[in-house]
Design a protein around this nucleic acid. Structure first.
Lengths: 351, 351
DNA sequence: CTGTTAGCGCTTTCAC
DNA sequence: GTGAAAGCGCTAACAG
């Protein structure tokens, strides 16, 4: 009932081997023969059996992309960029590779599960995006898993996280979160702010720690002690920004600036401030991180650190496909750019 | 070198069949035996060969999700929701299905290509999201392809588009774009606006047409003629909203309201108005569609039509997995909710 | 509850 | 340039 390659071969009066060669286009076949085969394929509406090809050839056209949550534009943009680079000629028949997007929710367990699933699929490559868990056990488990994936033939690329221990042949495109965090807070301090709240991401994640360290670096450089009461942790979402801002205001009514772990959190902070009748940046300045598309349209426009997410994702995709040389040492640092916009101003600027 | 199921069987002193049964958990196996097998799996670091399983079982754990662009939160949210429902027990070994996300860029050709690729993978299900092309040839080709996919055993679910011609066994969750568009414009007209610009989506897409028709329905109901000069088409992006607003203002300086095809476009419209020194809604009211997460944080908050994207995606995922009954007739309409917020007001409200 | 036995549909040496 | 044949690693009857 289901038409197979043998059916096509019979119809085209050639051997199955020839049909395979035509379909994969990786072997010389006489033009006339090819023509005949292609016609038969068309007439029979034949579609190659992917699992069978993959089994026989011991490779697949799937590329795994691990993200915290694909609904978050940070990850959506990276994933979109990776995809744009994995298609095109070079793969098996059809020349198109497909992206398997895995939502880990930031859980190392789910990350491991998905890595196993991708290993099972014999994924051609795996791109891990966003920060990593810093739990030593998890980190080790994931490093080991990545090594095994690499050994099994999958190319492994990290995009937005530091190199994994124990996975020597994986490539890492890391974001300069620490430097970005530092410059952002330097900017805020440079405006004259001294009571600065910091809304950090979830604990035990590389991104959270690096951005926070950058913030603290800047405070230290300015001779300011980091007041632990003014640093709150929470998820990378609007709600966290809202709640943390309320709490910061409670702890320090004289607060004049809030630096958030990312733009989404910053938007929540803005909402909380507005709801309390505080003006931005007149009463309180706000800064984010990432420069997601909506940030420039916030009112006032959000001061943030622009991360070239699309470019980084595209590069990760090319490296994963072997279309771009790996960076020396397997590591490249992607820098952010400070975007000073309307949401930050001098303290006490009034409404 | 690569360890196979046979190796595990040897080590556990059982037959390959037993190992398979343990791994798939879909067959009674003595606890002691299972234990032994699991231990062998662990010791050998064995990972099932997905393509081989899929070939032998004639099914796969892959679910295709077609989106215009995964970087767009509209699609990211739906995709995220679909994914949340396709995992869990019920699948093959591991119980986790994986999502293959395909960026079509709105191109019917790419959509067809990806559908073929998914057919090749013997995808367990395919979810097509967002509006469809209205080109009759494309529509027919896609309908035929969907039927073939269904015949081959993939469950097909449409989320956000009308039923496809020629694909009788596919399920459609359609958005009430027309009704939403009508209510939105009714609201604007109800405020007293008479010179209303409309920034539509790309031509020849179902979503574009339905929203526009809703807008025109409302105009007609109010006894107003639709002024063709005040309707512009463009992609669903910020830039389109910006440029179209500039052009609308040129064509009709007395414009008092802009209704946009979606929130992203509306944000672009807001930016254009602000850049021209016009206040929202004092000088010009703005409305969007979809109620994406950032819309409530726009200043002023965006009046829009809330589409339950996550809920719809989750439902599509459940139906795709056979975990929820199909709607009667294979069609269900998902309604939007008018969200009246600060970006719309009475005309001439001033700054 | 467990083992035996056929394939699933394709790719790929190896000959010709 | 093309064909023949031997698997790739697993699952699913069918026995027992």
């Amino acid at each position: 009932m289901t038409v197979t390659l043998a059916d096509v071969a019979a119809r085209a009066q050639v051997s199955p081997a020839t049909v395979s060669r035509v379909l994969n286009g990786n072997y010389p076949v006489a033009a006339a023969t090819r023509e005949r085969v292609l016609r038969a394929v068309d007439e029979l509406d034949y579609v190659l059996n992917g699992p069978a090809s993959s089994l026989a050839a011991a490779t697949s056209d799937l590329v795994g992309i691990l993200v915290n949550d694909i609904a978050d534009p940070f990850f959506g943009i990276i994933a979109s960029a990776v995809q744009s680079e994995i298609g095109g000629p070079g793969g098996r028949a059809g020349g198109e590779r497909m992206a398997v997007v895995c939502n880990t929710g930031g859980s190392a367990e789910r990350e491991l599960t998905y890595l196993t699933l991708l290993q099972r699929q014999r994924a051609a490559a795996v791109v891990l995006t966003g920060g990593a868990s810093e739990d030593p056990e998890h980190a080790a488990a994931i490093g080991a898993k990545l090594r095994r994936l690499g050994d099994a033939g999958s190319r492994v690329v990290l995009c937005g996280r530091p190199p994994a221990d124990g996975a020597p042949d994986s490539v890492a495109l890391t974001f300069d979160n620490r430097g970005g965090g530092r410059r952002l807070t330097e900017h805020v301090l440079g405006l004259g702010h001294r009571r600065v709240g910091y809304i950090a991401g979830p604990v035990d994640r590389t991104t959270t720690r690096h951005r926070l360290e950058g913030h603290q670096d800047a405070l230290a450089a300015a001779g300011l002690a980091a007041d632990p009461r003014l640093t709150l942790h929470g998820p990378y979402d609007r709600r966290s920004g809202y709640d943390a801002t309320v709490e910061l205001l409670r702890r320090e009514p004289a607060l004049t600036a809030v630096v958030a772990a990312n733009d989404t959190v910053a938007l929540g902070a803005c909402a909380a401030l507005r709801d309390r009748g505080l003006s931005i940046p007149g009463d309180v300045s706000v800064a984010g991180f990432d420069d997601l598309p909506f940030s420039v349209d916030a009112v006032p426009a959000l001061t943030t650190v622009r991360l070239p997410l699309y470019e980084a994702g595209a590069r990760a995709g090319r490296i994963a496909m072997g279309r771009e040389e790996e960076p020396p040492g397997g590591i490249a640092t992607v820098h952010g750019e400070l975007m000073v916009r309307g949401s930050t101003g001098v303290p006490g600027g009034g409404s």
